[in-house]
Structures are given as structure tokens and as C-alpha cells.
Amino acid sequence: MNSFFEALIALHIVVGAFFIFVGSFGLLKLPSFMSRLHAPSKSTTLGVGGCLVASMLQLWAAAGTISVHETLITFFLFMTAPVTAHFLALAYLHTQRSIDESLPKPSPNSNWSTLLNEESMTHSNSVRISEKSK
């Protein structure tokens, strides 16, 4: 393995580690729950991505084999990270709906699906039941 590859691998590890650091630092620094939720998305994309590219380059340069496991890790992270963020945001909306007044309404006659309150749910259910009984 020549020094060019070593420098390239080191560069990828440093860039990845930098973004993982920024993601963790953001968790510490940002003021509110929703803004803190933005911090880990940096670690999962460029942070982990940089380390995985370094790992692939290392295997390719040292052993001469191309490893695809790293792309799978990226793929699975890209599938699961948005779901986690989405559920955390939904939990926030449920607990904070009366406090957060900056939340816009989608349109006059609809609402965000997690905020449909119990009264309207039971109302629509009872309407459905009465329609069925007719």
C-alpha cells in the first residue's frame, strides 16, 4: 500500500470523524428538542459515510478485494435514520402541541394526522357506525 492510499484513507477518516464530532457537539449546543434532532443526521450521513469509504479503500488497497458490506451499512442507515427522526418528531408533536404555537395548519379543513384529537376520532367513528346501522 503506497502513501497515496494511506493519505486518502486518513483524509476520509478525519472528515468522517469531524462530522461525527459536529453531530455530537450539536446535541450539546442547540437549544430546543426539534433543533437537537437535526444534529445526528450529520453523523449518520457524512460522518459514518466517510469512515465506511475509508474502510472500503483500506480493504481494496491492502487485500485487493472489493467489500460491499460498507455500502449495505450505508443503505440500512439511510433506510432507518429517517424513520427514527420521524417518530421522535411525532412524539414531540404529541406532547407539545399546546405549547408550540408556531406550528402551521396544513389547510383550513384538515390537520396533521398525529394531531387529530380524540373527540373528532370518536365522532367520525360514531358517524361510521350510524351509517352502517342504517
Binding site: 437535526h38 443526521s41 450529520k42 420521524h86 418528531a89 408533536l93 396544513p106 390537520n111 396533521w112 394531531l115
Partner: peptide, 10 residues
């Protein structure tokens, strides 16, 4: 990064 999709309307 910088945007999170939180919910859909009903």
C-alpha cells in the same frame, strides 16, 4: 441535514 419531515396532513 437541516430539514426533518415530521408529519403528513390527514
Amino acid at each position: 441535514p437541516g430539514t426533518i419531515s415530521s408529519d403528513f396532513s390527514d
